[in-house]
């Protein structure tokens, strides 16, 4: 398993944990609107993360094999984020719009925190 595959597996695992927490929050707390917004945002964010991982693997494989390739899916990710916001705007009684926005940023937080923890772990291993 390459370094990239390990990283993607870790990120998916953390996203699943967060989704589970948001589902529990939507079901058992007195703030279902906020947690449903977070859930909608993080589902779309997870889709964006999956798409980014898949497109980067396809793109770099094509670059290594010198075969033609298509883009890295930027427009698809923007469109997915726009869809989430449109759903939240249409059903404002069910989804909190700021929570959807925070949910959309979940995968970026996961990427940054995972990368920081990985770097700290490996730099301490090198020193020790």
């Amino acid at each position: 398993m390459s370094q990239f595959e390990k990283m993607t597996a870790r990120q998916r695992k953390w996203m699943f944990y967060l989704l589970a927490i948001f589902v529990l929050g939507a079901g058992f707390t007195p703030y279902p609107r906020i947690f449903l917004g977070l859930l909608l945002g993080s589902i779309v964010s997870f889709y964006n993360l999956y798409l980014l991982q898949k497109k980067i693997v396809d793109f770099t494989d094509a670059a290594a094999n010198k075969t033609p390739t298509r883009g890295i899916g930027t427009v698809s990710r923007f469109a997915a984020a726009a869809l989430a916001i449109i759903i939240a705007l249409r059903m404002e009684e069910n989804f909190h719009i700021i929570a959807v926005l925070i949910g959309l940023m979940t995968s970026y937080l996961v990427i940054m925190i995972d990368f920081a923890l990985y770097n700290i772990k490996h730099s301490s291993k090198k020193e020790g």
């Binding site: 990283m7 980014l52 980067i56 995968s107 970026y108």
Partner: peptide, 12 residues
């Protein structure tokens, strides 16, 4: 791949 992934993620 890892560097590109993190870069593209943060840029987007």
């Amino acid at each position: 791949q890892t560097t590109m992934f993190i870069g593209v993620g943060l840029v987007e």
